[in-house]
Nucleic acid binder design. Structure first.
Length: 1124
RNA sequence: GGGCCUGUAGCUCAGGUGGUUAGAGCGCUACACUGAUAAUGUAGAGGUCCGUGGUUCGAGUCCACGCAGGCCCA
C-alpha cells in the first residue's frame, strides 16, 4: 500500500474542482471561522460589486487580493469573518432598464409606473449573481455568499436612514446649491448622463468679450479676462490666475476709446491680442484712430505675484456690492493659456469651477435675497435678468443711446437666446451685445468678437444649457476636513502614494458631499418638509416612520399607512405616498431626492450588520476593518465614503490597511473591452489553467498596485516553471518514500542538528523563508512573498537540494542519513503547502492531503492548520553563506570546464582558490566535499599569502571613503588604483598607508580599501565579485580511465533504459575493446561500474560479436548488456 | 488643465539610505545530464536604465523641465 500517492501527470483544473467540492462537503470555509471562535478578530470589509454585468478577469485580481490576507490571518490564529455584499442601486442599473424597456427618464411615471420600473431594476441588478458566485467559488475567494448584505434590503436602508439622521442631528446635512446644467426652456436640471447624449454639443457663435477690470487705486491699469458668456459679467466676483504661469503688464491703447492704458495678461496670450506688425512702433507716436496699436511690455511676473490684487467691480450696480475678498485675484488650478487671456473671470452662480474656486477662497458671490432671505442669482429660472440688473442695463442703454430691434424693459433681458425674437431683423441685439456696447463705451472692453465654440444644448428643447445653481442636499464634509486628513495619516496605504497623493490631496481640496440624485431606484432621502420649508423632519428608523405615519393618520392627512398589510419597502414610490404632519399641523412631503449610491457602500460597515438596530456586539468586534482592498479607481468612491462616514459619525478610521490595486490590461497594455475583443474570459482561463496558477501569476508578476499586463503565456509559465517544479519535487519524494516505506512521523524525527549539512542548510533556508513570507504578508506585500517562495522552491529546494541529495535516496537500505533526507524533504514540502496556501489554496490543500494521508494526526485541510512559526534556532547564516560560496564556486568551475571543453563527467585533479581570510577558508572547507562531487574534481587547494603565488588587487571602498574625503576623492582613488603588490602588502602589514592627494597627505586605513585576489599567473581562472577559482586541467592516465569508466556507466545506463529494465533489475556486461586505456579503465574501475549499473558481472572479451557500438569521444567500444 | 502612477535586455519584472563590472525569469544560441525524464542543469549573447539640464568626487537612484503611456478629477 503506497503511503504517498504518485502522479504521472497532474491536471490542475481538476484539482481545483475536486478540492472545491471537498471544501463544500466538509464545510472547510465555515470551519475555518468557527474553529477560531473566541480568538482575536481580524476584520475584512467586502466592497460590494454590482451583479448587473458579468464578471471579468480583473475581478479575479481584486478578489484574490482580498482573499489572501484573510486566509493568512486565519492561519495566524485570527477569526476572520467576511460577509459578502451586493451593490444594487444606482444609475447603471436604471440606464440598463431604460434601454431594455426602450424608454427614457421622462417616461418613468408616465409610460411605466415607478412601482413597475423599480421592480424591473430590482430584478435586473441581481441578474448575474449566479455567475458571480460561481466565479467567486472557482477562484477560491472565501467570503460568505449565503448571507450577504444587499443594499436594497429594507434593513440595510434603515441603517442608512439612522446614519443620515445622526448626520442631520449634528447639523451636517443641509440643503444648498450646486451648479448644474439646467434647461430654462424645459425648466429642469439635466444630469451629466443627459449631457453625454449624442448631439448635445453643438458649434455655436457667441459674442465673446475680453473685459477690462480696473485695478484699485491704480490709474489706467486693467486686468484682462475673457468670457464667452458676457451675461455672467455682472455676477463677477473674482478673477483667477495660474500661479505658475507668466504674466505681463503691457503699455498700449484701448482699441475702442483709444485711451492710453496698461493691461495685464498671460505672456503666452499676447499673440492673440497684439498685432506683431505693431511690435516696432513707438508707443508714444500713437494717434487715436491709427489701425496698428503699439504695445510695450513694461513688467513681467508670475501669476503667484498677482494673488490678492484688488480691482473695481465691473458693473457697480446698487445692491450688488460685495465685501472683501470679493473683487480680488485668486488662484485657479484649471487656468490655462490655451485661450482667452490666461485670466479667468469667476461668477459663482454660473460655473461649477467658479463656484468651487470661490468657495475654497471664501469669496462671496453676486446674489440677491428672495422673500425668504435666500440667496438667488441675478438671472432667474426662465433665463432672464432680475429687474435689479435689468434696470441698470435699460438705464445704460438710454445713457449711451443704444438702439435695438425692440424697446427693452427691465424684464426683457434674457440671457442666451431664450426669447423667440428673429435674429435677422434690423438692429437685432441680444443681451450679450448690449452688454458689449456698454462696456466698449465705458472703456471696460479690450476686445469684442464673435467666437465659435462647442456648447451643450438641452436634448428636448434644443436650447442652450445654462449652468445654474440648483438645490441639493449636502453632507458638510468640509466641517471635518482637518480630522479626515489627520485620521487618513494613520491608515496604511498600499501603495503609500495613493494615500498621501491621490487620496490625501483630494481630502485637502475637499468640497461638501453632494448627496442628491434625481432618480428612482435608490435609497430615498428620509427628509420630509412642509411646503413653505418652515419645518423639516429627518426620519431615522422604520419605527419612527410608523409612529409619524400614525400621527399623520390622526391628523387626517393619511387614511391608512401605505405599509399596512404589505411587505415593508422603503423605496419609491411607496415612501413618496407618506405625508407627515408638522408640529403646527401642516402637511409635510418627502424631499424627492434619492441619495448617492456611494453612501450605500460607504455605510456597509454598519448596515451589513443592521447596526444600531441589531448585532451591536458583532459590529463592535468587527470595526474598524483591519483590511480592505479595491481598485485604485475607488479612491474617491468607496475609500472616501467609508472614511467620511467613519470620521464624521464615529471619529474613527473605517479601515486600517488598504491595498488599492491597479488595472488589468491586455498583454499589449491596452484596456480590455468586450467591444475590442481583447477581454479575457475568466471562466475559460480557469478551465484551462486552474485557479492556482492564475492567482499566483497575478500576484507574483507585478505589484498589485501597478497595472498588470495580463498574458496567458505568463500564467502558463508560472504553471510550468513553479507548480511543475514543485510537483516534480513531490513526485520524487513520493516515488522513493514509497519504495523505502518511509512515513513521516512527527515527534520521532531526527533532530536537525544531527542531519547532514545539506539538510541543515535547506532547513535553515526554509526558516528564513517563513520569516520573509511573514514579514511581507504583515506588510501587505503579496508579491514579495510569492517571489520569495518561488525562489526557494525552484532554485534552492529543487535545483540545489534535491539534485545534490538525490543519491542519498537511491541506493541501499534505510539508514539514518536517508531517513534524515526524507524527513528534511518532507518538512520542506509540508511547510511550503502551508506557506503557499493563501495564494494557491486548491493545489496546496491537495498537496497537503497527499502528504498527510498516511498520518494519524492531521487537519482536514491545510486551511485549518495553525501557522508554523519559524524556528530561528535552526537558522545558520554561516552555513547559508558557505552554501552560497559552494554555488558560486561550482558555477565558476562549470564555466571554466566549458571554456576548456572538459565535460563534467571527466574527473579533474584539483581546483585552486585564493584565500584572503581564514573565515572564508573555513566556510569553503565546510562545503568542500559538495563542491568536489558537484564539479567532479579530486581536491580543493587553498592559496594564501604563504603560497607566494597569490596576486592581490585593491579597490577603494567608495561609500566609506566618499564620506571622509568628499571632493578629494578623485586624487585618492587615482593613487589607490596605481598601487602594486608592495603597497597592498604595506597597508595589510601596517593597517594604513599615506597617500598624496593633490599635495595633501592623507592616511588611508585598511578598512577603507577592498582587497581581493586576482588571476593566478599561468592558470585558467574565473572570478566572481569575491571569489576566484583556477582549474588544473592536467589529465593523467588515471583521470582519463575514470572518465572512461563514467562514460561507460552513462552509456550502459542508457542501454538499461532502452531495454526497459526496472531500477532493481540486475545485469551482466560484456565489453569488447582493443584500447589499452579502456581495458585499464575496466580493470581499475570495474567495481565502480558494476555498482553504478547494478551489474553482477563485468568482463572484457575480445571475441564478442554482437552488441552495441558505443562512441566514447576518443574511443569505440562494443558492449553487450543482458538481464541476469 | 490638475493630482497620482509607470517608463531598466526582444518580453515580464528586481534594483533600502547615491558608490566600482545594473540583475532575475522567459525567449534565443550552444553544451551537458539522462534512475525527477513530455523533466533537469550549465554557459553565452543580449542594455543610450525614456530625454535634456542640474546637484555631486561619483546619478538607474536626488532635483528641475520635458516626452510617452495609464488612472482619477476637471
Amino acid at each position: 500500500m503506497k503511503k504517498y500517492q504518485e502522479y504521472k501527470q497532474v491536471n490542475y483544473p481538476e484539482i481545483g474542482e475536486s478540492i472545491l467540492s471537498y471544501w463544500k462537503e466538509n464545510e472547510i470555509f465555515e470551519k475555518s471561522i468557527t474553529n477560531r471562535e473566541g480568538a482575536e478578530t481580524f476584520t475584512f470589509f467586502e466592497g460590494p460589486p454590482s451583479a448587473n454585468g458579468t464578471p471579468g478577469i480583473h475581478h479575479v485580481m481584486a478578489r484574490t487580493l482580498k482573499d489572501i490576507f484573510c486566509r493568512y490571518k486565519t492561519l495566524k490564529g485570527f477569526q476572520v469573518k467576511r460577509k459578502g455584499g451586493w451593490d444594487t442601486h444606482g444609475l447603471p442599473v436604471e440606464l440598463q432598464v431604460e434601454k431594455e424597456l426602450g424608454i427614457t427618464k421622462e417616461d418613468i411615471g408616465k409610460k411605466i409606473s415607478v412601482e413597475e420600473y423599480n421592480k424591473r431594476c430590482k430584478e435586473t441588478v441581481m441578474r448575474f449573481k449566479d455567475e458571480w458566485d460561481d466565479l467567486t467559488e472557482k477562484i477560491g475567494y472565501w467570503v460568505d455568499l449565503d448571507d450577504p448584505y444587499i443594499t436594497f434590503d429594507s434593513k440595510y436602508i434603515e441603517t442608512l436612514w439612522s446614519l443620515l439622521k445622526r448626520l442631520y442631528e449634528k447639523d451636517l446635512l443641509y440643503k444648498g446649491y450646486t451648479i448644474q446644467p439646467y434647461s430654462p426652456a424645459a425648466g429642469t436640471g439635466l444630469s451629466s448622463h443627459e449631457l453625454n447624449q449624442p448631439g448635445t454639443y453643438k458649434d455655436v457663435k457667441d459674442t465673446s468679450i475680453t473685459a477690462q477690470f480696473k485695478l484699485k487705486d491704480q490709474e489706467n491699469t486693467y486686468i484682462l479676462a475673457w468670457t464667452t458668456t458676457p451675461w455672467t459679467l455682472p455676477s463677477n466676483s473674482a478673477l483667477a490666475i495660474g500661479e505658475k504661469l507668466d504674466y505681463v503688464k503691457v503699455r498700449t491703447y484701448n482699441p475702442y476709446t483709444f485711451d492710453p492704458e496698461f493691461v495685464i495678461l498671460a505672456k503666452a496670450r499676447m499673440g492673440a491680442y497684439f498685432n506683431k506688425k505693431a511690435a516696432d512702433l513707438k508707443v508714444d507716436d500713437y494717434q487715436p484712430g491709427d489701425k496698428l496699436i503699439p504695445y510695450q511690455i513694461v513688467e513681467e511676473f508670475k501669476g503667484k505675484n498677482m494673488l490678492g490684487w484688488e480691482y473695481d467691480q465691473l458693473f457697480p450696480i446698487e445692491g450688488l456690492a460685495l465685501a472683501h475678498p470679493a473683487f480680488t485675484v485668486i488662484s485657479g488650478d484649471y487656468v490655462t493659456t490655451e485661450d482667452g487671456t490666461g485670466i479667468v473671470h469667476l461668477a459663482k452662480a454660473f460655473g461649477a469651477d467658479d463656484f468651487r474656486t470661490l468657495v475654497q477662497n471664501n469669496v462671496p458671490g453676486v446674489f440677491v435675497k428672495d422673500e425668504k432671505e435666500n440667496d438667488i442669482p441675478v438671472v432667474d429660472k426662465q433665463g432672464k435678468f432680475l429687474p435689479v440688473v435689468g434696470e441698470y442695463l435699460a438705464a445704460k442703454m438710454q445713457e449711451h443711446g443704444i438702439n435695438a430691434h425692440k424697446a427693452f424693459g427691465v424684464d426683457d433681458f434674457y440671457v442666451k437666446n431664450y426669447t423667440e425674437d428673429d435674429e435677422n431683423q434690423a438692429d437685432y441685439k441680444n443681451t450679450d451685445i448690449i452688454i458689449s456696447i456698454i462696456l466698449k463705451n465705458e472703456n471696460k472692453a479690450f476686445k469684442v468678437e464673435k467666437y465659435e465654440h462647442s456648447y451643450p444644448h438641452c436634448w428636448r428643447t434644443d436650447k442652450p444649457v445654462l449652468y445654474y445653481p440648483l438645490e441639493s442636499w449636502f453632507i458638510k464634509t468640509t466641517a471635518y476636513k482637518d480630522r479626515l486628513v489627520e485620521l487618513n495619516k494613520t491608515i496604511n496605504w498600499k501603495p503609500e502614494a495613493t494615500g498621501t497623493g491621490r487620496f490625501g490631496n483630494w481630502l485637502e481640496n475637499l468640497v461638501d458631499w453632494n448627496l442628491s440624485r434625481s432618480r428612482f431606484w435608490g435609497t430615498p432621502l428620509p427628509i420630509w418638509r412642509t411646503k413653505d420649508g418652515s419645518e423639516e423632519k429627518c426620519i431615522g428608523s422604520i419605527a419612527e416612520l410608523e409612529a409619524e405615519i400614525q400621527k399623520s393618520i390622526n391628523a387626517g392627512f393619511m387614511t391608512s399607512s401605505p405599509y399596512e398589510g404589505k411587505e415593508l419597502d422603503l423605496h419609491r414610490p411607496y415612501v413618496d405616498d407618506v405625508i407627515l404632519v408638522s408640529s403646527d399641523g401642516k402637511e409635510m412631503y418627502r424631499e424627492s431626492d434619492l441619495i448617492d449610491v456611494w453612501f450605500d457602500s460607504g455605510a456597509m460597515p454598519y448596515a451589513q450588520w443592521h447596526y444600531p438596530f441589531e448585532n451591536e456586539d458583532i459590529f463592535k468586534a468587527n470595526y474598524p476593518a483591519d483590511y480592505i482592498a479595491e481598485g485604485v479607481d475607488q479612491t474617491r468612491g468607496w475609500f472616501f465614503t467609508l472614511h467620511a462616514i467613519a470620521v464624521m459619525l464615529f471619529d474613527s478610521v473605517a479601515f486600517k490597511n488598504v491595498v488599492a490595486n491597479g488595472l488589468v490590461l491586455d498583454q499589449n497594455g491596452n484596456k480590455m473591452s468586450k467591444r475590442l475583443g481583447n477581454a479575457i474570459d475568466p471562466f475559460k482561463t480557469l478551465k484551462e489553467y486552474g485557479p492556482d496558477a492564475l492567482r499566483w501569476y497575478m500576484l507574483s508578476n507585478a505589484n498589485p498596485w501597478d497595472n498588470l499586463k495580463f498574458s496567458l503565456d505568463g500564467v502558463a509559465e508560472v504553471q510550468r516553471r513553479f507548480f511543475g517544479t514543485l510537483q516534480n519535487t513531490y513526485n520524487f519524494f513520493a516515488l522513493y518514500a514509497n519504495l523505502d516505506h518511509f512515513v513521516y512521523s512527527e515527534g520521532k524525527v531526527i533532530p536537525v542538528s544531527e542531519r547532514a549539512e545539506l539538510d541543515q542548510w535547506i532547513v535553515s533556508k526554509l526558516q528564513s523563508l517563513i520569516l520573509e513570507v511573514e514579514e511581507s504578508m504583515d506588510n501587505y506585500d503579496a508579491t514579495k512573498a510569492t517571489r520569495a517562495i518561488m525562489n526557494f522552491t525552484v532554485d534552492q529546494l529543487s535545483n540545489w537540494y534535491v539534485r545534490l541529495a538525490r543519491k542519498r535516496f537511491w541506493r541501499g537500505e534505510m539508514s539514518a542519513d536517508k531517513q534524515a533526507a526524507y524527513e528534511t524533504l518532507y518538512e520542506c514540502l509540508s511547510t511550503l503547502s502551508q506557506l503557499m496556501s493563501s495564494f494557491a489554496p486548491f493545489y496546496t490543500d491537495w498537496l497537503y492531503q497527499n502528504l498527510t494521508q498516511a498520518l494519524d494526526k492531521k487537519e482536514e485541510s491545510v486551511h485549518l492548520t495553525d501557522w508554523k512559526e519559524a524556528d530561528q534556532s535552526l537558522i545558520n547564516s554561516d552555513l547559508e553563506t558557505s552554501m552560497g560560496l559552494a554555488q558560486t564556486i561550482s558555477s565558476l568551475v562549470h564555466s571554466l570546464r566549458k571554456k576548456e571543453k572538459l565535460k563534467v563527467r571527466q574527473p579533474l585533479q584539483r581546483i585552486l582558490i585564493p584565500i584572503l581570510s581564514e573565515t572564508t577558508r573555513k566556510q569553503i572547507e565546510h562545503v568542500e566535499e559538495l563542491i568536489k562531487s558537484e564539479v567532479n574534481i579530486k581536491e580543493v587547494e587553498y592559496i594564501d599569502d604563504a603560497s607566494g603565488i597569490l596576486v592581490k588587487e585593491v579597490k577603494p571602498n567608495l561609500p566609506v571613503l566618499g564620506k571622509k574625503l568628499g571632493p578629494k576623492m578623485r586624487f585618492v582613488v587615482a593613487a589607490i588604483k596605481s598601487w602594486g603588490q608592495e603597497e597592498i602588502a604595506e597597508i595589510e602589514r601596517n593597517g594604513s598607508i599615506e597617500v598624496d592627494a593633490d599635495g595633501e597627505k592623507i592616511s588611508i586605513s585598511v578598512d577603507e580599501v577592498l582587497i581581493s585576489s586576482q588571476d593566478i599567473p599561468g592558470w585558467s581562472v574565473a572570478s566572481d565579485q569575491s571569489i576566484t577559482v583556477a582549474l588544473d586541467v592536467t589529465l593523467t592516465d588515471e583521470l582519463k580511465q575514470e572518465g572512461i569508466a563514467r562514460d561507460l556507466v552513462n552509456r550502459i545506463q542508457n542501454l538499461r533504459k532502452e531495454m526497459g529494465l526496472e531500477v532493481q533489475d540486475k545485469i551482466v556486461i560484456e565489453v569488447k575493446t582493443d584500447q589499452e586505456l579502456v581495458e585499464a579503465a575496466i580493470l581499475n574501475f570495474g567495481d565502480y561500474i558494476q555498482t553504478e549499473t547494478q551489474a553482477n558481472s563485468l568482463s572484457g572479451s575480445k571475441e564478442l560479436s554482437e552488441g552495441t557500438a558505443l562512441d566514447l569521444d576518443d574511443f569505440d567500444v562494443l558492449v553487450q548488456v543482458k538481464k541476469d
